Amino acid sequence: MAQDFYEMYLEEMGQIAPMSAEEEARILEQTAAGEVQARKRLVEGNLQKVLSIAKEYEGSRLPMADIVQEANTALTLAAVEYDGATEWETLLDRRVREAVEEAVREQEAELEVEENMAARVNALQIVSQHLAGELGREATVSELAEKMKMTEEEIRDIMKLALDALTVGGDTAAAGGETE
C-alpha cells in the first residue's frame, strides 16, 4: 500500500514545474519577507531536491513513503524557518537530513524493542513448556519468574504481550475471543 502511494507521488512530481535559478532567487527574497504564496512555491519547487536527498536513505528499515513524508515535512518547516540569514541550500539539506535520520533512528529503535519482546515471549514459551514437562502441570507465574530470574510483574507483562500479539494477528479464537 505504501509503495502505491510512493508511486503516485513520483507520478505527481513529474507534473510540477521546476524552478529556474532566477525564480528561486526571487522566491527566496519573497519567502524571507514572509510572503506565504512564495513559501508555497519554494516548497513545490524544491520537492525534486528533497526527493533526491530522501533517496539516499532508501534501503533503510523505514519504508520509502515514510522517508519522503519526513523529508517533505522538513522541507515545509525549512521554508517557514527561512529568513535569509542562512543559505537556503544549507538550511534545506540540514533540516531534511536531520528529520529523515531521526525517523530512521526511531524506526530502528522501535523494531529493536519489538524484536527484544518477541525474543522474551519465545523464551517464556520455551521455559513454560520445559517446566510443564518437569512438573506435570502448567507452571505458575511465580515458578516462571523464579526460573527466568524475573519478577512476576515482568512475566505477566510478557504474557500480556503474547496474548495481544495473538489478538492483533487475527487469532482471536486462540486468545479467548470470539470469531465471526
Results as ranks from 00 to 15, higher is better:
residue 127 V to R: 08
residue 26 R to F: 10
residue 59 G to I: 15
residue 21 A to N: 08
residue 34 G to P: 07
residue 108 E to S: 08
residue 31 T to S: 13
residue 128 S to G: 10
residue 50 V to F: 01
residue 133 G to S: 06
residue 71 A to W: 07
residue 67 I to W: 01
residue 110 E to Y: 01
residue 68 V to G: 08
residue 57 Y to H: 11
residue 32 A to R: 09
residue 151 T to H: 06
residue 162 A to P: 01
residue 134 E to H: 07
residue 167 T to Q: 12
residue 121 V to K: 01
residue 20 S to L: 13
residue 59 G to M: 15
residue 18 P to E: 15
residue 58 E to S: 07
residue 169 G to L: 07
residue 127 V to C: 10
residue 53 I to Y: 11
residue 81 E to G: 07
residue 17 A to V: 09
residue 49 K to P: 12
residue 82 Y to G: 12
residue 27 I to D: 12
residue 92 L to I: 03
residue 157 D to V: 00
residue 48 Q to F: 12
residue 24 E to A: 12
residue 44 E to Q: 13
residue 52 S to W: 12
residue 95 R to G: 14
residue 84 G to K: 05
residue 140 T to L: 14
residue 109 A to N: 01
residue 177 G to S: 00
residue 7 E to G: 04
residue 176 G to A: 04
residue 108 E to G: 09
residue 140 T to I: 04
residue 157 D to N: 11
residue 166 L to S: 06
residue 112 E to P: 00
residue 117 M to P: 00
residue 119 A to E: 04
residue 96 V to M: 11
residue 45 G to W: 04
residue 110 E to H: 01
residue 57 Y to D: 02
residue 174 A to H: 02
residue 65 A to N: 15
residue 108 E to L: 09
residue 120 R to D: 07
residue 25 A to K: 04
residue 72 N to S: 15
residue 54 A to K: 05
residue 98 E to T: 15
residue 93 D to L: 07
residue 159 M to T: 03
residue 134 E to W: 06
residue 31 T to M: 02
residue 159 M to N: 04
residue 3 Q to F: 09
residue 69 Q to H: 14
residue 154 E to V: 12
residue 92 L to F: 11
residue 147 K to P: 05
residue 167 T to F: 01
residue 29 E to N: 08
residue 118 A to T: 04
residue 127 V to P: 09
residue 75 L to Y: 05
residue 130 H to T: 15
residue 142 S to F: 09
residue 8 M to I: 05
residue 80 V to H: 11
residue 144 L to Y: 02
residue 72 N to G: 08
residue 172 T to V: 15
residue 34 G to C: 02
residue 121 V to P: 00
residue 126 I to P: 13
residue 21 A to D: 09
residue 42 L to S: 10
residue 17 A to H: 13
residue 126 I to A: 10
residue 78 A to C: 14
